[in-house]
């Protein structure tokens, strides 16, 4: 699956996009976050508090229980500040 990061989440992780292949047990956003935290110190820090990070699956805002599957585009970012 393709994982995208924006704003300070991108800066802390050090990349804007990565292709990942988590084990089959990773079936929802919550378990994907737990798995991503082990990839680096930057991942662990940026994704430490899910109350501060929003998630989109296939470009639609979702909650931590939303399913994820290979081929999905998952994005992590702070609360929006446009307008």
């Amino acid at each position: 699956m393709k994982v995208l990061y924006f704003a300070w989440v991108r800066e802390r992780i050090g990349t804007d996009c990565e292709e990942v292949s988590p084990p089959a047990a990773v079936g929802d956003v919550g378990s994907l976050v737990a798995w991503l935290r082990n990839r680096s110190e930057g991942h662990a820090e940026a994704l430490s508090d899910l109350a501060r990070v929003r998630v989109a699956v296939n470009q639609e805002a979702v909650g931590p229980d939303h399913p994820v599957a290979s081929g999905d585009e998952i994005a992590f970012f702070p609360p929006m500040t446009g307008g």
Partner: peptide
Amino acid sequence: LKTRAPFW
């Protein structure tokens, strides 16, 4: 727009 469109 301010709270839902993904701008930072």
